[in-house]
C-alpha cells in the first residue's frame, strides 16, 4: 500500500461517512456539511489517483477536475445556505418536511 492509495482509502471513507450523514440527518446545515465531506472524499480520491506512476509528476487532469469540483461544491453550498435562510425566514423551519406534506392535497 502506498501513500496515494492510503489517501484514496481515506477519501472513500469520508465519502461513505458523508453520504450516511447526508441521508440520516435532517437539519439542513448538517446536510450541507455532509455534502462537503462527501465532496472532500471524492476529491481526495481523484487527486490520489493522479499519482499513478510512483515518483513521477502527477497527472494534471485530476487536479483540474478537483479545482473545478471545489468551485462547484462551494457554489452549491452557498446557494443551499441562501435557500436555507429564505426557508427559515418564510416558514421558521430548518429541516425538510416530507414532500407528501408539501404537496399536501393527497387527502380523500
Amino acid at each position: 500500500m502506498n501513500q496515494p492509495t492510503w489517501y484514496a482509502l481515506t477519501g472513500v471513507i469520508l465519502f461513505s461517512m458523508g453520504i450516511h450523514a447526508f441521508v440520516i440527518r435532517t437539519h439542513l446545515v448538517r446536510r450541507i456539511l455532509a455534502f462537503n465531506i462527501m465532496g472532500s472524499g471524492v476529491f481526495l480520491l481523484l487527486v490520489a489517483i493522479a499519482h499513478r506512476i510512483p515518483g513521477a509528476a502527477p497527472d494534471p487532469v485530476p487536479h483540474a477536475l478537483v479545482l473545478t469540483g471545489i468551485v462547484v461544491s462551494v457554489s452549491f453550498t452557498a446557494f443551499g445556505l441562501v435557500l436555507l435562510k429564505k426557508i427559515y425566514a418564510k416558514t421558521g423551519k430548518t429541516a425538510l418536511i416530507d414532500p407528501t406534506e408539501s404537496t399536501s392535497d393527497q387527502t380523500n
Partner: peptide, 8 residues
C-alpha cells in the same frame, strides 16, 4: 418512500 432514510 419519500422519507430521506427510505430514500437512502
Amino acid at each position: 418512500i419519500s422519507r430521506w432514510t427510505a430514500v437512502g
